[in-house]
């Protein structure tokens, strides 16, 4: 039963990511872990992609504990925005730590720096997990500006973006920018299950 759900999600992720330059995913929090599982399984299955995973919802540590194979993947880099702010001082060569989720410019710089070194034969994709957690630490107007800015710069370099937003945490602002800046919106509903 559960597998069917994950497979279904993977299918939708796969379709959306390949076709569209920027995908927005709005999902209820109850489906967050399913989405994560589908996403990571999909990422590990695609060697022709290079992924940058922007971790704002939870620390990198927690993510690799759940998906151990992620730390072994050579085509994924993490940017962790929450560990340092939470006082976690772990280090990992696979992850760049940013002192605070409010250092939005630094986040942009690090994302662009990682992709700069990736060859053109790989499809570059940025995962933002999640826009709604970013808005916990920043004013909405700032998140809007950040997102707009980021989308402009990633598009210029042919980098696809895949942005998550938790439905319960969303407000009009996030909703608006998701719809304005994404080529494709995937909306998960509990009814879907």
């Amino acid at each position: 039963m559960s597998n069917t759900l994950i497979d279904g999600l993977k299918e939708r992720v796969s379709q959306a990511i390949t076709i569209n330059t920027s995908v927005g995913v709005i999902l209820p929090s109850s489906n967050y872990s399913d989405m994560m599982q589908a996403l990571f399984e999909y990422m590990s299955s695609r060697n022709d992609h290079f992924w940058v995973y922007l971790a704002i919802s939870k620390p990198y540590e927690n993510i690799v504990k759940q998906f151990e194979y992620a730390s072994q993947m050579t085509n994924i880099r993490f940017i962790d925005c929450v560990s340092r702010a939470a006082g976690i001082t772990n280090k990992d060569p696979n992850c760049i730590y940013i002192e605070s989720p409010s250092y939005l410019e630094k986040i942009i710089i690090e994302i662009m720096n990682i992709f700069k070194e990736v060859g053109d034969q790989l499809q570059k994709t940025l995962i933002i997990d999640s826009l709604t957690s970013l808005s916990i630490y920043n004013d909405n107007a700032l998140v809007t500006e950040f997102f707009t800015h980021l989308i402009n710069r990633t598009r210029l370099k042919d980098i696809h973006t895949f942005s998550l937003a938790i439905e319960e945490e969303m407000d009009d602002y996030i909703n608006k920018i998701m719809y304005l800046r994404s080529n494709k919106i995937i909306k998960l509903r509990e009814s879907f299950i």
Partner: peptide, 14 residues
């Protein structure tokens, strides 16, 4: 340490 100084437009918060 890797790149020294880097700049990017400042996001303007209200």
């Amino acid at each position: 340490s890797k790149n020294g100084i880097e700049l990017t437009p400042l996001l303007k918060s209200r």
